[in-house]
Simulated assay, not measured.
Amino acid sequence: MTKTSAGRFFEDYAVGDLITHAVPRTIKMGERALYHALYPARHALHSADTFAQACGLPFSPLDDLVTFHTVFGKTVPDVSLNAVANLGYAEGRWITPLWPGDTITATSEVIGVKQNSNGKSGVVWVRTTGRNQHGEALLTYVRWVMVRRRGDGPVPATVVPELADSVSPDDLVIPRGLDFTHYDFALAGEPHRLGDYRVGEIIDHVDGVTIEEAEHMLATRLWQNTAKVHFDATHRPDGKRLIYGGHVISLARALSFNGLANAQLIVALNGGAHANPCFAGDTVRAWSEVLDTAPTVAPGVGAIRLRLVATKGSAGQLRDAEGRYLPDVLLDLDYWALMPA
């Protein structure tokens, strides 16, 4: 009897399937140290207990993207081990902060399937939820993936889910106790509050980071992401290892500190696309566009909706005249963050 697994192929998914992902992960301060070593992450709320306590929290939570990467990594063996591409995200919400010592588990529900016209692959939509050891939801999001077919057997009936264009500000979950009324702008690194940003404003985050082969593979292993394209140079015809898209997300988010140092917490993921592949040797830069702002019920806390773009090119450049992503664009991410009102 075969004891190894080649992973799931498109034919192995059916709407309504609930997948329990293996290998719970207890997250401690080592993850923070590694995260800050891998990315130029400097947001104060995720760096210092004293700063977090002055903002009403018991201590500093782990970076929001640590939650995302850990949950995402749990799903790879069951959802995207045989993926051609990770196509997009929607309806993402961070619900409970991740504290040092928490144990993460994850499940995914298949909510859509559609075979591609070439007959060699199909798109699978899943809604993934990460939970802590108390059963509390940490994060939930939808993603869709193009997955290879195994052969010429029967395929599941097409179901394409209806997804919201964005998360409503009314549905944003504010961490219990968060209070920015005595926020220390000097310690945070910039003076800008919510009212200083205008819808349509473009922020060039100025700095760049050149990706090295070793660091992206270290990061991907840290999140226990087993996708072959990130490690196996024989898996692609060009002999290159594809950079994990989440690595690009974290680089861009960290670079956004320069201009958005007070966008302290990510609370929703409205949508996103990995527009073009990223490889070792690429220098990643980032820019943001302000899409919306909203008040929240928490004292002194506002919400800002941002488009975060990772690129090898210039700030503000996204699509060509036909509406296609420019070849230098790596990531187009739409999210909500919390900052002082």
Rank of each mutant, 00 (worst) to 15 (best):
M1R: 11
T2H: 10
R8I: 07
F10R: 06
E11N: 09
G16K: 09
L18M: 13
L18H: 14
H21C: 00
G30D: 15
E31L: 11
H36K: 12
L38Y: 15
A41L: 07
A44E: 10
L45E: 00
T50V: 12
F51K: 08
Q53R: 15
Q53L: 02
C55M: 05
L57C: 01
F59M: 12
V66N: 13
V71K: 11
F72P: 08
N82G: 05
G88W: 09
W94R: 08
W94C: 08
T96Q: 14
P97I: 02
L98I: 01
W99Q: 05
G101C: 03
G101L: 01
T103G: 14
A106L: 05
S108T: 11
I111P: 09
G112Q: 12
K114H: 12
S117W: 06
S117I: 12
S121Q: 03
G122A: 10
V123G: 03
V123S: 04
T128N: 14
R131Q: 13
A137G: 06
A137K: 13
L139F: 13
Y141N: 07
V142L: 10
R150S: 14
G151M: 05
P154H: 10
T158L: 07
V160H: 04
P161W: 04
L163F: 04
L163P: 08
S166M: 08
D170C: 05
R176W: 02
R176T: 15
L178Q: 06
F180D: 04
G189E: 07
E190A: 15
H192N: 13
L194G: 10
Y197T: 04
E201S: 13
D204C: 05
H205I: 09
D207P: 07
D207L: 14
E212Q: 13
E213P: 08
A219N: 14
R221F: 03
Q224S: 15
N225A: 09
N225C: 14
T226Y: 01
A227W: 03
F231P: 01
A233T: 09
D238Y: 03
K240I: 02
R241L: 04
Y244R: 15
G246K: 12
G246Q: 05
I249Q: 09
A254D: 08
L255P: 01
L255F: 00
S256Y: 00
L265A: 11
L265R: 13
V267N: 04
N270T: 05
G271T: 02
A273P: 04
C278I: 06
A280F: 06
V284W: 07
W287D: 02
T293F: 06
A294Q: 09
V297K: 14
G300D: 00
V301C: 00
G313H: 03
S314K: 08
Q317E: 12
L318E: 01
R319F: 09
R324I: 00
R324P: 01
W336V: 05
